[in-house]
Design a protein around this nucleic acid. Sequence first.
RNA 1: AGGCGCGUAGCUCAGUGGAAGAGCACUACCUUGACACGGUAGGGGUCGCCGGUUCGAACCCGGCCGUGCCUACCA
Length: 934
Amino acid sequence: MSNQELGKAYDPSQVEDRWYRFWTEQGYFHADPAARKAPFTIVCPPPNVTGSLHMGHALTFTIQDILIRWKRMQAYNAMWLPGVDHAGIATQLVVERQLKRTENKTRHDLGREEFLRRVWAWKAESGSRITEQLRKLGCSLDWKRERFTMDDGLSAAVREAFVRMYEDGLIYRARRLINWCSRCFTALSDLEVEHKDEAGSLWHIAYPVLGSDDKLTVATTRPETMLGDTAIAVHPEDERFKHLIGKRAVVPLTGRDVPIIGDAELVSKEFGTGAVKVTPGHDPNDFEVGVRHSLEQLSIFDTAGRLIAPAPVKYVGLTVADARKAVLADLEAEAALVKTEPHALALGRCGRCDTVVEPMLSLQWFVKTKPLAAPAIAAVEEGKTRFVPESWTKVYMHWMTNIRDWCISRQLWWGHRIPAWHCAGCAAITVAREAPAACGKCGGAVTQDEDVLDTWFSSGLWPFSTLGWPEQTKDLKNFYPNSVMETGHDILFFWVARMMMMGLYFMKKPPFHTVYLHAMVVDEDGEKMSKVKGNVIDPLDVIGGASLESMLAAAEKAGAPKQALSNIKKTYPDGIPAAGADSLRFALAVQAAQGRNIRLSLQRIESFRHFANKVWNASRFALMYLKGFDPDRFADALREEPKSLGLGLAERWILSRLTRVSKEVDDALEDFRVNEAAQQLYRFIWNELCDWYIELAKPALHVEGPASSLTDEVARRKRMAQGTLTTCLETALRLLHPFMPYLSEEIWQKLPKPLGTPNSIMVTLYPIPDAQLIDDEAETVMGLVQEVVGAVRTLRAEYGVPLAARPRVVVFATGARLEVLTAQLALVQGLARAEVELAQGPGTAPEKSVQAVVQGDVEVYLPLGGLIDVAAEAARLDKELAKARADVAFSERKLGNASFVDRAPAEIVDKERAAMAEAKAREEKLAAALARLK
RNA sequence: AGGCGCGUAGCUCAGUGGAAGAGCACUACCUUGACACGGUAGGGGUCGCCGGUUCGAACCCGGCCGUGCCUACCA
């Protein structure tokens, strides 16, 4: 590669697509299962096929890509498998809506087969959108291994899993109380129901006791369900009602009478009236009571959410809401409604469509979870799988321990059809991998079960079904268990827990070693991003930029309300400027602290766009001065015998810092502290490499003329600076690559590199810290240089000495410090932009000068030609002196404490003594300066 | 009702036992031969409150207040 010059500012749009294409063409995303390298696997949790990339995706895929690129550069056989999920309910809903809109038809008008054909057509057209978007983000996914949960292979895996579990008695069919969404028209698992507290009422209703004048008053939040009551329950030890147990009560409005039972588990004596109506057909608690007391189960709602018999004819056909009104009115009329009080209740709503879910008796398929949960608990207890952050272990354990059977059948068309066939003749069920010709029991005709499986059933198999299971493929052998599962903590139960259960059951090993759960991306006010609120930031808008008009159009298309549109107008009057994928990635990474939500703002992203530009310009600077530089000689010497190079202080210092930072970045990534790794890089590149080293190297680099015209020493110094700068930059870019793949590649390609270097940064080695380069002395000396330079700069700034002026500065120092400063005089002068006179201290203050004190006894004087504002200088010195005195007092108090000196580690005590000596010296100098001034 | 977080500079957040840090915002100065998407300097914090442990606490322990999330069948 030649040393091309870079443009003045980094423009991601000119860079990103080009490199993504290059990486793909080179096959660098593909992992060869035959490679003789240790595997590192991440199987990406599949996003919904209906989805388009949002910030949550951007975060999870950024973190995964960071991990995978890092491990790939560490010479692991890194494999990151992409794919999407068929998202049963969501997808069916999308296609149904489209059908309604374009043809005004329902899925029933088309019939099952034709409808499914339409879904596949929709998938072919819009379903791959998200995978395209992931490419924009720079994700190094192994696209050759891309999977879809409805693929043939994965469908076969689902059938295999179902059949085996059925044969092992882990899948059964039963009539149970399930969650029913009357809009999606399907059963839901407990996890798909969201509970929120909502305002409601507690109605007190009087039930006449049969054969007496007594009335028993119950309290309920759902009066309409009384039409399905089959008992009244009181606490068996409640003196008020004990005598009624065994008698019967009349259910108002129905004329039916039901038993009064005693049940200590259901009824609390303190709550409400102390008596509870029991509706086993429409309440999970009551269902349990019904089982305990052999009560009748009445269903009075149909699947569409309307009342049916045995509810009295009068109410049949009403919706649940209307029935409530009617029932309350009628109770009032009968004077059976005793009291109404406000009461909050947790209503269950469908996670997909927000419709209130109704507990309904229904014949469904279930997974027996207890036997699956036990190994999933053990695997974590035994440390075979660990959670990061560790605090999720408890949450997982709690859920696994209290797990309930899982309803897996859905009354949908889009999904894996349940591999069970019902016999018309004998009603036997045949469960099989392939459609049976006839009933296994009586040989009669069979028809396949109409239902499909919960989408999460196939997701549970994902870590191994994607690798070819049930076939014993090379991939399966090589990449199972996966190394890391990286996902949001919101789907710990949906995905992780079920993958654990399924993985252990079918593969006998947990599906992953580490589960890394990241926090949620929210807006800058900490609110969940939602289209309804209009506070979403679309990752693609951030990457490529967006006009206000296009943002409004997109929001409108997504069905955002007016309020959301006006929010967008207010927040982004000028749209969003293009920041590029790398800036977005870095912004997400640096904020991804464990256990804390990420409040994302455009402003924050912009600051990392500036960072990208900073890296770009530092590189641009370097490239300007690297012409004719031979990287091989320097690199070899640095690796084999760094001392032989005779590096200057600045070089030794920055290489030492680079080495430490490499180690810190690597350590942080090892612990999933992605944010700290990113932060370290940001600081190193900006605050050390750019702010200090580049400035320090300028004099050495900025020498005119061809090498032959320079003296040997000047030419040598230039080579050292060139070599050091290249090394730091090249190493920093490799460190940065997992975070900012495009920028790092674009620049890296242009840097001079030793022979035999690969053709892409993504297949180079991740930097390995070289202990030889750690240089404590250089770091200490640089510390002094920085402080002296800082003192001069402060004085210049305080007294308005213009930058163009090159004032005379007098510095007095003693001992080792004087030696060091003498040796580094050129550096100090360059950075301070001053002529520095060094002398043995203590010295006499030059006429009309202002002063600072550094490291105890280094005196820095800036003589001012004209008049000094005595009052201002006195005030400044006063402040410094006060600080010095406070420092002395603090140390004195500490060292005066006998138990501190006795019990604190010697190292700490020594440090404190040194600090006191330094502060005392400083105090003395400052006091003298002040006295002189007055 | 339980569980888990969080509370540090105006804002957003790092920091897990030895005298408080970053980014943004703010103030002053500066077109200095990489960068104004920049530079230099500066202002700004009793680390939510109260106790305890410790020579020493933002950090460990207990309680309280505020706040967020998750789980749960209290009608």
